[in-house]
């Protein structure tokens, strides 16, 4: 009972925090330099991980689709099926989970560390709005970086699929990419990519909330880091269900 109460209270805190993030991201001053720096940290530095995973996921997916489609003599559908799987769900979700692992833990630990070593107090004492400077910039960077990384993941995935496929069937590069994208419609491509901004918001807000409010020294920092990953992954997966439903609602056509 007490646990439930605490959980609800915690969740309320998170919601208020999220509201504060939204409010603050639209009011000046805007920490542009910090945002760029965070995009560098969160986006650019995640790119190798995302590209590598994309290549791996794409080639594995391609191999699986091949073994399934082969039975029906539908090998020519492999690029299409792969692009469908990647662009509509696998790409956004895998990117989301990878980013929540890498970036979520990073934000949780970094802000947690800054909190317990009084660096956040120090920022405040230097007349810097630490919320804007640390939290808003990271959330905004996550929101911006997620769709970009998802695009990277999608293309790396299709490329990985191409590599796996070309080994077996010697398919040509341009043909593969053209087929991959030819059966998609805009409603298969744009909404799932855009929805990852929400993933970015979830990852940024949850981990920043945990880090920014960390207590309890080094142990607390560790806790903030792990919880950031765990909770942002869970929220992301749950929220994805709602988002997919929501996208179906907006674009009934994308359901097939």
């Amino acid at each position: 009972m007490e646990n439930a109460e605490r959980a609800i209270e915690w969740f309320g805190g998170l919601s208020l925090f999220a509201g504060q993030v939204i409010r603050n991201s639209f009011s000046p001053p805007f920490e542009f330099t910090e945002i760029l720096k965070q995009i560098f940290e969160i986006g650019w530095r995640s790119a190798p991980l995302i590209i590598l995973s994309g290549l791996a996921v794409g080639s594995v997916l391609s191999m699986h689709t091949r073994s399934t489609l082969e039975r029906f003599g539908a090998e020519s559908m492999i690029p299409t099926a792969l692009a469908f799987a990647l662009v509509k769900e696998t790409g956004p979700l895998v990117t989301g989970l990878l980013v929540s692992g890498r970036v979520g833990a990073g934000i949780g630990a970094e802000l947690g560390g800054m909190r317990v070593t009084e660096q956040i107090d120090a920022l405040e004492s230097l007349a810097v709005n630490s919320f804007k400077y640390l939290v808003v910039t990271r959330v905004v960077a996550c929101v911006v970086a997620m769709p970009l990384l998802t695009v990277l993941m999608n293309f790396a995935g299709v490329l990985g699929g191409f590599f796996a496929e070309t080994l077996v069937s010697g398919s040509s590069f341009t043909f593969y990419f053209n087929t991959a994208f030819s059966s998609l419609s805009f409603s298969d491509y744009i909404p799932p990519t855009i929805k990852t901004t929400v993933f970015g918001f979830i990852i940024g807000t949850t981990s920043a909330f945990l880090g920014y409010n960390a207590t309890g020294g080094a142990e607390g920092v560790g806790r903030a880091a792990t919880q950031s990953v765990v909770l942002s992954s869970i929220f992301l997966i749950v929220c994805n269900v709602l988002l997919v439903k929501f996208i179906f609602f907006l674009y009934p056509g994308s359901g097939s």
Binding site: V87, P147, L148, V151, N154, F155, F177, N178, A180, F181, S182, S183, L184, S185, F186, Y189, I190, T193
Partner: peptide
Amino acid sequence: FGLGLFLIGNS
């Protein structure tokens, strides 16, 4: 992303 849009639009 634009390339993807283009490929889809083209097809």
